[in-house]
Nucleic acid binder design. Structure first.
Lengths: 131, 131
DNA sequence: CAGCATCCAGGACGATACTG
DNA sequence: CAGTATCGTCCTGGATGCTG
């Protein structure tokens, strides 16, 4: 991109005008929730395909309720596909879609940023709280 | 850690081990809230420095309460600096720090992703809801 | 195994009113 | 102008127990 180099700015107003005023914020809010990013990263780590219990183990601290709900949202958003095998005991596998995989790049950018800067953030917080 | 270039993967477990298990998620949750990204983008748009009322106008729909609270968090995290001018009527200016500016790149990545993919997400949701 | 149903506590957020 | 205070609502998410 960068064809018209003029529109290289970040324009919140433009964001709000781009088709749907709520679209961007909605997507950002989605992946900003407590578990989505970790589930997405874990699923990718597990080769892009895993079953429920594998994810449960891969994401320490997540409850069944939240894993279930997070996966359901991801499925609804087209990020993962849920496949049920008619077996006993039941087996369910979740696979990342192409759309889901595209989320990995910007996510990685955020994770890197967080890793590189969280210490400075902590220091700033300490300084702030001292007063 | 990180010496071996093999560790180029996204490892949630590694994320959890990197100094503080909650750090990454905490930062992600922060910028995933309802207003932070828009305030950051707007402040950048306004030249990296603006007063309260300018931001209020730049971020449509935000209330004084939320703008105030969002700015306070950003200040605490070292993303912006709050400068009070002892005048009548009072004037307060907020300026982005270097740390805050560093947040812009990954944020832009997310915004781009959201813009490029929200339509596909909508379609997926429609298909899902039809059943 | 892979979940759903229920209950509950805490926080996010909006609306409104007030102030140095 | 740049907030704070207060109130009420909605939603998130944790804990627990039950099921096909």
């Amino acid at each position: 991109m960068g064809a018209s180099s003029k529109i290289r700015q970040l324009d919140p107003a433009a964001i709000c005008r781009s088709s749907d005023p709520l679209a961007v914020r909605e997507l950002l809010t989605k992946i900003g929730d407590k578990w989505t990013i970790f589930v997405v990263l874990s699923l990718d780590l597990l080769g892009g395909r895993a079953r429920f219990s594998e994810l449960e183990r891969a994401v320490p601290g997540i409850s069944q309720r939240m894993l279930s709900s997070t996966l359901k949202n991801l499925e609804r958003d087209g990020m993962v596909i849920r496949e049920v095998f008619p077996e006993v005991p039941p087996r369910v596998e979740y696979e990342m879609t192409e759309l889901g995989r595209r989320l990995l790049h910007p996510t990685q950018g955020l994770v890197d940023w967080a890793k590189e800067n969280w210490e400075q953030v902590r220091e700033a917080q300490s300084r702030y709280d001292e007063r």
